[in-house]
Write a protein that binds this DNA or RNA. Structure first.
Length: 268
DNA sequence: CTGGGGACGGGGCCC
DNA sequence: TGGGCCCCGTCCCCA
């Protein structure tokens, strides 16, 4: 029954069963029609080029990650926004405690580091898989001309999507991405298609009205866990996102964006 | 204008 | 290798 709840998210997880079991067991589950999956869409490995590296920078709220979604015309400098340090033991930040929305704790003791490239993995399994990527990367090495292994461990890519410019360094990742083009999961109620079954399940809740995620503070229920997470921020006195100009905090990045662009420091 | 909810997309991780 | 799940994030809409 206990599922994998990384980083203590079970603290505010719904009291009901796991996400995959409620209300989906009846008709809605039959709404999933994942038979449309054209594997033939998978590309060959002939394509080879380096692509932009997706670093984990965005995960630690670095300001450099912010302008990606800023309005192009906005003169706001990224440096006007800074991640809020919630390290202070504020009781208001209780629901944020231990979640992965926080920067991952260094805790090197339980990290599994790759001897090849130094990348830290969260588990032995992850490390094993990562090391396999070195093996497969060796296979792909001629696809991705790269001589600096240590520096390029995160940059090599060999599998290119034929529908868009995206590239991936593993076939599995590419297959997953291609689903976003093929949308194999179709809602039988409204016909809307989704890339993954659980996306469809979430969508089906909009039809059924099911709200399995409830707030422990106000008992308000949500159909989407992410929305509950955002809601929990409203109960926190100190919000996660802070404007470095006026120190005002916001529950959402988007609100911070609006604030910096429109009212606080639009010309900064 | 601001804050918040609803709906959804996508990459990563674990089994 | 694939499915399921998690988290992060965005966009839109409304009060």
């Amino acid at each position: 029954m206990q599922q994998r709840f990384r980083d203590g998210v079970s603290k505010w997880f719904c009291p009901q069963q796991s996400t995959g079991s409620q209300a989906i067991q009846a008709d809605p589950i039959s709404a999933m029609v994942p038979e449309r999956y054209p594997l033939a869409e998978l590309p060959t490995k002939e394509d080879s080029s380096l692509v932009t590296t997706y670093t984990s920078a965005a995960l630690v709220w670095t300001t450099s990650a912010l302008p990606l979604s800023f309005h192009p015309s906005s003169p706001t400098t990224p440096s006007s926004i800074a991640p809020l340090d919630l390290s202070s033991p504020s009781s208001s930040g209780e629901e944020d405690e231990g979640r992965t929305s926080d920067p991952p704790s260094p805790d090197p003791s339980d990290r599994f580091q790759c001897a090849h490239c130094g990348i830290s993995c969260s588990s032995r399994a992850a490390l094993s898989r990562h090391q396999l990527s070195h093996c497969s990367a060796g296979t792909n090495a001629n696809l991705v001309e790269n001589s600096n292994m240590a520096d390029s461990a995160t940059t090599r890519a060999a599998f290119r999507c034929k529908h868009c410019p995206k590239e991936y360094n593993s076939l599995g990742a590419l297959k997953m991405h291609i689903r976003s083009h093929t949308l194999p999961c179709v809602c039988t109620t409204c016909g809307k298609a989704f890339s993954r079954p659980w996306l469809l399940r979430g969508h089906i809740r909009t039809h059924t009205g099911e709200r399995p995620f409830s707030c422990p503070h106000c008992n308000r229920a949500f159909a989407d866990r992410s929305n509950l997470r955002a809601h929990l921020q409203t109960h926190s006195e100190v919000k996660k996102y802070q404007c470095s100009t006026c120190s005002r905090t916001f529950s959402r990045m988007s609100l911070l964006h609006k604030h910096t662009v429109s009212s606080c420091c639009p010309s900064a």
